[in-house]
Structures are given as C-alpha cells and as structure tokens.
C-alpha cells in the first residue's frame, strides 16, 4: 500500500511574524514519513504522552492507594509462588530463603516492565479509535505513552525490591551504576517491540489476545527463575538447549541486570554488547514497521 502514503510538508510562507503553516498532502512512494518533521512533532507533543500515561493509569484505578498496592502485591504473590516452585524442584537456596527470594523478585519485576510495555502498546492503536479517526498527530505518541505508563507502574516495584534487597542483607556498590545503561537498553528494546506489536494489532486484531500466552512462555525462557550462571552450569552438556535460552533478547538484558544487583559487579561485556544489539535491532525494526504503516491506520481502524 506504499502508493497510498501521503507526505505532509510544512513550510513557512511570508514574514516571520505572521507566518501561516502550509500543509501539502499527496500520495508518494517513500516508505517512511519525513523523519525530521515527524520527530519534531513527536518531541513537541511529548507532554501528551506523559498526560495520557497518567490518564491511562487513572482509568485502570492504579492511581489510588489500593491500585498502587495491587501493582506491587500482584508480582510479589507471583514471585512467592515461583520461589516455592523453584525450592521444591531444586532444593532450598544455599544462601538462605530471603536471598533466594530476591533472585526471583529482581528478575520478575524487570520482566514485568518489558511485558507491560508490550502489552499496553498492543492495544494502544486499536483502542484509540476515535482519536485516530478525528485527529492528525504522530501515532508513535500512543506507544510512547504506553512506555510512560509502564515506567510509572515499574518504579514502585523497584522501591519494594530495594526493601527486600536490604532485608536479605545484600550489598550495594559502585557497580550499581551499570543499572542505568542496562535500564536504557531494556527500555529501548521494549519500546521497539511495543511499536511493532502496536502496528501488528491493527492488521491482526487477535494480537492483543494471543500476546499474553506468548508472554507467559517468554518468562520461563528468561533468566527470571534462574540466573545466567545457573543456566550455563546446568546446561553445560546441552549446547542446543542453552542456545535456545541465549537466543532470547531478555537473556542478556535481565541477565546483566541480575548480575549487577545480585552479585554487585559489572555485567559481562558480552551480555551488555548482545543486549545493546538487540535493543538497536528492535528499535529500528519496530520503528520502521510502525512508521511505514501508520498513515494507513486511519483507513483500518
């Protein structure tokens, strides 16, 4: 449907004081909208994404005390169940229950951040019907707002984790500065996936209902119930099984996150490199897919 694309050019006519914006809409063959204009419009409207994120959380009652509590209690309960499962399957953790619990907690909270971004993004275009039919704006604002919502849901769980971390007697050191780049890598990766699934849901409306299954399987393949070194140890003779784990983008991302938090050390260079590569690929791929399709969304909603 490339020929249906239209280009909106903004030019300034006349003097600087009384300039009238001129828009020209016509079909054109290029795959992407003019990026400079697009990014400028997106940046200009960033407050929209922020406000929309707040409104979304409020709509889901997450801005009340009980809503906030639920955001924390839900993954806590899940972590408790996983902890029991892991204990039954592979015995009590060597360095105490509380320490074993923080291993699962840190990975699970981190996983939930990515999961929320993808899940909220997958409904943001198909659920934005009237807005998309009645207003012209860069549609990437909606996945961006899903990202902001997910972050607002993520940080309270980080506070809870910090409490558990200290309660378990775990250390904090300079290496924790690594958490910042890892967080950025994870955010970029998740946003790229979010863009992809947001556009995908326009073409296949069952995307949003199929995703939860895929996301549930994903958690078992990610270093949430185990750490990277445990996987390497236990799967030592089983190269292809280890390869499946390693092919997962969350393996380097959550893996390096856990290395810093749980072992108080700089993450493996390979994991960082590998995670960053995934982030770049996801962002470029997701943004390309989304941007090349978004002018068609209003035709399909």
């Amino acid at each position: 449907m490339a020929v249906m694309d239209a280009e909106a050019q903004v030019a300034n006519k006349g003097g600087a004081a009384d300039s009238v914006p001129v828009h020209v809409y016509e079909p054109y063959a290029a795959h992407l909208p003019p990026l400079k204009t697009y990014l400028r419009d997106l940046w200009q409207r960033r407050r929209f994404a922020y406000r929309m994120a707040h409104a979304t959380l409020k709509g889901r009652n997450y801005e009340t005390v009980f809503g906030q509590l639920w955001l924390v209690i839900n993954p806590l309960l899940l972590a408790a169940v996983y902890f029991m499962l892991v204990t039954v399957l592979s015995g009590s953790p060597e360095d105490g229950a509380m320490k074993g619990f923080t291993v699962i907690l840190s990975g699970l909270f981190s996983y939930y951040y990515t999961r929320n971004i993808i899940q909220l993004s997958s409904t943001c275009i198909t659920g934005g019907g009237k807005m998309i039919m009645n207003m012209a704006f860069p549609k990437a604002l909606l996945p961006l707002s899903a990202l902001f919502s997910s972050f607002m849901m993520y940080w309270p769980t980080l506070v809870v984790y910090a409490v558990a971390h200290f309660a378990a007697g775990r250390a904090v050191g300079l290496a924790f500065a690594w958490l910042v780049p890892i967080f950025v890598v994870q955010t970029v990766f998740s946003f790229g996936c979010g863009l992809f699934f947001a556009a995908m849901a326009v073409y296949f409306r069952d995307t949003a209902s199929l995703l939860p299954y895929a996301l549930r399987i994903w958690i078992y393949l990610s270093p949430v119930l185990f750490t990277v070194s445990q996987a390497k140890q236990k799967l030592a003779g089983n190269e292809w099984l280890l390869w499946i784990f390693k092919a997962n983008p969350l393996y380097p991302i959550i893996g390096s996150w856990n290395q810093v938090i749980l072992e108080n050390r700089a993450p493996d260079g390979m994991l960082m490199l590998y995670g960053s590569a995934w982030a770049v690929v996801a962002l470029l791929g997701g943004a390309w897919f989304f941007l090349s399709r978004e002018r068609e969304f209003a035709y399909r909603i």
């Binding site: 020929v3 249906m4 694309d5 239209a6 909106a8 006519k13 009238v20 914006p21 001129v22 828009h23 020209v24 809409y25 016509e26 079909p27 998309i132 039919m133 009645n134 207003m135 012209a136 002018r295 068609e296 209003a298 035709y299």
Partner: peptide, 19 residues
C-alpha cells in the same frame, strides 16, 4: 478527514494554508 491530514489521499493533492 483528508483535509485534516488524517487520511492520506490515494491520488491527487491537497494544499491547506493555516492551522
């Protein structure tokens, strides 16, 4: 909707001066 920039034209051209 095409004049508002919501639906891109399939053929032809639209020129809009102003917000």
């Amino acid at each position: 909707r095409a004049i508002a920039g919501i639906l891109p034209p399939t053929r032809g051209r639209i020129e809009v001066h102003g917000r």
